[in-house]
């Protein structure tokens, strides 16, 4: 665990730096993916960039609105750099909504666009795990296994390492899959299936799960539902493609 990297007088917050690196390295895959799928690389990059900006602004606004009276006294505090004063839910909702609207207006087709973004998501997931490793977040449940690590007052499952291994394996699969010619949407839905499947398994060793219905781990219930939805999506896409009439008639690989 190393939340702060001390470089002389500079205290760099390592988890934040890793997340930024993840976005940057992940976005390096965009041009190649856009070309592979016949999308405008420029529009795809803009979609990512502006969604991130919009997500950050929504995250801050969500927080500010919750504590409006505090900010009324110090309005300039709205633009402070504290990452603690970002509200994750509002941020994600803002970014996804913006991406949806921008994508429609820019004429980016839904499934090929999601496929093109998938390698970036997979790269980011690896850095997300590294950031957890640096901050000690997403920590494991107390355990007696010999590979347990001493963290937050107990010997715990090294859940961040499990997460890192799973994210790396999924990134490997995504990089392998992108050179195959798959139906539009299959790449993305497979990535969703792998990611939710991994979370479903690994959540069992987490020490910070949100518990619902008196014992179930929220992340497992949500992962299972999303996994089933992704498998249903794969089935529907495949049937539409193979159907003698309907949307699958024109070849979706080229059209």
């Amino acid at each position: 665990m190393m939340p702060v990297l001390q470089l002389g007088p500079l205290a760099i917050q390592l988890p934040g730096l890793l997340l930024l690196l993840g976005v940057w390295i992940g976005s390096l895959t965009l041009d190649g993916e856009a070309a592979r799928r016949g999308l405008s690389a420029d529009r795809l990059s803009k979609l990512v960039f502006f969604s991130l900006i919009f997500g950050l602004v929504s995250a801050r606004l969500g927080y500010v609105l919750r504590y409006a009276s505090a900010y009324a006294a110090d309005p300039l505090g709205v633009i402070s750099l504290s990452p603690q004063t970002l509200s994750a839910t509002e941020g994600v909702v803002g970014a996804v909504l913006f991406a949806w609207i921008y994508g429609r207006r820019a004429g980016l087709p839904l499934w090929p666009t999601l496929d093109a973004l998938t390698p970036m998501f997979a790269v980011f997931a690896v850095f997300f795990a590294l950031a957890h490793f640096a901050s000690g977040d997403a920590f494991g449940a107390p355990t007696d296994v010999p590979w347990g690590i001493e963290l937050w007052g107990a010997a715990r499952h090294p859940s961040q390492i499990y997460e890192l291994i799973a994210a790396s394996a999924i990134l490997g699969a995504a990089l392998w899959l992108r050179s195959r010619s798959l139906l539009p949407g299959v790449m993305f839905l497979l990535w969703v299936s792998f990611t939710t499947g991994a979370r479903l398994v690994l959540e069992a060793w987490r020490g910070d799960s949100t518990i619902i219905f008196g014992g179930l781990r929220l992340a497992q219930v949500a992962s299972l539902m999303i996994l089933l939805a992704a498998l249903a999506g794969l089935h529907i896409l495949a049937r539409a493609y193979l159907a003698p009439t309907g949307p699958g008639k024109e070849d979706p690989l080229t059209g």
């Binding site: 479903l200 069992a204 020490g207 014992g215 299972l224």
Partner: peptide, 22 residues
């Protein structure tokens, strides 16, 4: 298969809320 195995795993790894260390 996914529903049964996933559901079983979710049930096996269920814990009382009080077991979370927070």
């Amino acid at each position: 298969f996914v529903l049964v195995i996933g559901g079983a795993w979710t049930a096996v790894s269920a814990v009382p809320a009080s077991s979370m260390t927070g």
